[in-house]
């Protein structure tokens, strides 16, 4: 089937089978390998991308179901101001080691920052439940998100 959608602001087309997941369409057909695949059953969160502005699991979402959608991956967040602040905070707080969970983690973190500006540590941790990291023990990740939340509050 021909799939037409917008990826990172650019209209694209791809020939995919109906069974192809959005993750595989991005990685194998569109060569956007920033989105990593961790479990292919929706638990680990590594493959989280934005579909029409909201985080979603690209491993359990059919690519054909995204026809006409606006998809944004880590590659499309280079200029995003919240993602930029998060990248800075992730580096400062050592919120990544092997980097495999990081793209999905940033997509989720960005959603937390935008959707829950008043979130404290327990809420941030709860919201991170769907993004597994095997390296950091989450210490740096939680600190980085709290740091960006605080910065945005200060900035008004």
């Amino acid at each position: 089937m021909t799939l037409s959608l917008s990826v990172n602001g650019t209209p694209v087309e791809a020939q995919v089978e109906p069974r192809t997941s959005l993750a595989d369409a991005l990685r194998e057909h569109l060569m956007l390998t920033g989105t990593n695949v961790g479990c292919e059953h929706g638990v680990c969160g590594a493959c989280t991308v934005l579909i029409d502005g909201a985080p979603a699991r690209s491993c359990i979402t059919l690519a054909v179901a995204c026809d006409g959608a606006d998809v944004r991956t880590i590659e499309g967040l280079d200029e995003d101001p919240v993602a930029t602040a998060l990248r800075e905070a992730f580096a400062a707080e050592h919120a990544l080691q092997c980097g495999y969970c990081t793209p999905g983690m940033l997509v989720t973190a960005r959603d937390i920052v935008l959707r829950l500006p008043d979130a404290g540590e327990p809420r941030v941790r709860e919201e991170l439940a769907g993004n597994l990291c095997r390296c950091t023990g989450y210490v740096g990740i939680v600190r980085a998100i709290l740091r960006v939340l605080a910065e945005r509050k200060t900035a008004g």
């Binding site: 990685r27 390998t33 920033g34 989105t35 990593n36 695949v37 991956t73 880590i74 590659e75 280079d78 990248r87 992730f90 580096a91 400062a92 050592h94 990544l96 092997c98 980097g99 495999y100 990081t102 793209p103 940033l106």
Partner: peptide
């Protein structure tokens, strides 16, 4: 010191075998 490797991972530019 901040990590030199962070920049590529934070932009989804890590090159794992699957890539």
């Amino acid at each position: 010191l901040r990590r030199k490797e962070d920049e590529r991972f934070l932009r989804g530019r890590g090159d794992y075998v699957g890539n």
